[in-house]
Design a protein around this nucleic acid. Structure first.
Lengths: 226, 226
DNA sequence: AAATCAATGTCAAAAAACTGTCAAAACCCA
DNA sequence: TGGGTTTTGACAGTTTTTTGACATTGATTT
């Protein structure tokens, strides 16, 4: 497990090093610029980030990292500030956990472990599956140079399918994501899937929406032999 | 965003409801059993879990949920206990965050938001028994390169058999898992077992469904001498 | 050993549920 | 109002699930 510790206080750094070193591979940065550089260049499992840093503020670093990193490691913020406003700021900047000094090293460790468990967030503004690309921001699905606009519901459905791929996603889940507790009382979803399929096939993509009878739908790349 | 709150203290519950209700869809459970049931049956974005619960301990619930849920929602533990040992227990059970009472509702909210951001953990669970492999995610049973899709009921039955193996599981238990309190009034289960056996034997697997007369069914690897 | 009985296996056919298709109606917004 | 979006409803085709009728099995009793 690789952990990046961005902290300018040498004492704290040494403590952390002593405590975590046997179990983790640690990198250290002493200022914000260096920290961001390391964070973006390497693939860490967790980043421990002090908020008060020379050169570049922790909040700033966090925002920059979350927007620029392709594979976002979870960030644990470390700070002496304990007001709710500070925490809000930190989480709003993209932190995943927040620990106020002074803290027990063991608590730091278990929180690092907890953070490392979850899969990392992929920073993809556009989704893709096989040869297809879909941009949820403007609801356009495209294959190479040809593309088609989708309407709202179709966009949501395609996004859900792409996020779930290659697994199936149940009609109930899709329905709930679109309509919440009160779905339309007729098979509107069926119609949307139908239309989505027509659009996909007009793009000549190799992806298609498979139905997993009574379990849901799945976006899948057609195998070559069909 | 859907949040499940498992908390037996009605005051705290009401507070949480008041504070979060406008923004989130909340479900409540008042005891551990009901909480686990809801957690497994629905797809929540975050689960808020009090540790001291009637019927089933929070730690226990957490472990059970993490091992049984296909798609694990992050769990935020809520408790009056503030020792490191308690936190370690909680995180070891699979918690993703830990908040000690009393807490500020705003902090609860920002931590819920932070948890909801991260992608959920998929429980990659393919079962096997002898030479057979069964993937409940797509209901496909396979032996080496050959495989067969199962329909819903067959899938549930095979999963139960595999989970129980090498022990037998009673018809009543299977029936209850499939139909709940109101099973069909004819021997539908017999027919499903029959069909499942046909599928298994078409795969030439060495596993077979044994019947333990008046006790139930059992999945077993045939011994070589038959 | 034969008779009996309940539990189970076998199978075809009926019933129910699910899905695809599409045109038309309802809705919404500029 | 007009045009795109979304829902409705009807129908057909398919798969899944249940039903029911009968055969078999194994244990128990006579």
């Amino acid at each position: 497990m690789r952990v990046l510790v961005i902290e300018d206080n040498l004492d704290i750094q040494a403590n952390i090093a002593d405590f975590l070193e046997p179990d983790y591979v640690l990198d250290f940065a002493y200022n914000g610029d260096h920290g961001l550089e390391l964070a973006l260049a390497n693939d860490y499992d967790v980043i421990v980030l002090d908020l008060m840093l020379p050169r570049r503020d922790g909040i700033d670093l966090c925002k920059a990292y979350k927007s620029e990193a392709n594979l976002q490691a979870p960030i644990l913020m470390l700070t002496a500030r304990d007001t709710l406003e500070d925490k809000e700021l930190g989480f709003a900047a993209g932190a995943d956990d927040y620990l106020t000094k002074p803290f027990a090293l063991r608590e730091l460790k278990i929180r690092i472990d907890a953070l490392a468990k979850r899969p990392k967030i992929k920073n993809a503004s556009s989704l893709n599956c096989g040869d297809l690309t879909f941009d949820p921001a403007d609801n356009i699905v495209s294959l190479g140079s040809s593309s088609k606009p989708l309407n709202n519901k179709e966009g949501v459905i395609l996004r859900l399918l792409m996020e779930a791929a290659p697994n199936a996603i149940s009609s109930e889940t899709i329905s709930y994501r679109i309509w919440g507790e009160e779905p339309p009382n007729s098979g509107a979803l069926r119609t949307h899937i139908y239309n989505l399929r027509k659009i996909l096939s007009s793009l000549k993509t190799r992806c298609e929406i498979e139905t997993d009878r009574s379990r849901g739908y799945r976006l899948k790349e057609r195998s070559s032999d069909e």
